[in-house]
Amino acid sequence: MDYIINHFDFFVDLIDFQITSNCVDFSLFKTICGLIVSLDQIKIPENIVNVEATHDKQQYSEIFLFTISTCMWCKKAKRWLNRQGFQYSYLDIDLIPVEDKNKLKAEIQEVFGVKPRFPFLVVNKIQWDSGYNPDIWEEMIN
């Protein structure tokens, strides 16, 4: 799994090459997709909040944020995303039943291989960052 993550660009290029040269090897594609960690592998409760973009630039990244509603760092994170004008979705994990929350945290840990701390950012379903690190986020998102 780490190998795929570390060589993600290589695999993207490989798939890109196969598509452009019209010789797609679907078995390879499926293997890679099966190994790549993704937010889709996590069952997210329905209390998601969607925030609309406030700028009219094209946004290529899909942004999801797990937060705690009372957390100062999470509030900073939401304000930072708002200031950038990004469209994003978030889930305040402390506002869902504790059993669901524990299940969710366990799934995040299993899928992304890290014990999450909050805010926990996921970009394009596969890239993640644990904690509030706007310098890193800027690179991840742009």
Partner: peptide, 21 residues
Amino acid sequence: TGLQANFNRLGYYNCPCRDSQ
């Protein structure tokens, strides 16, 4: 306000930046 919300919901001052059980 985070500590206030936690106290009023949980009955104790849970750290506002950490997830409570």
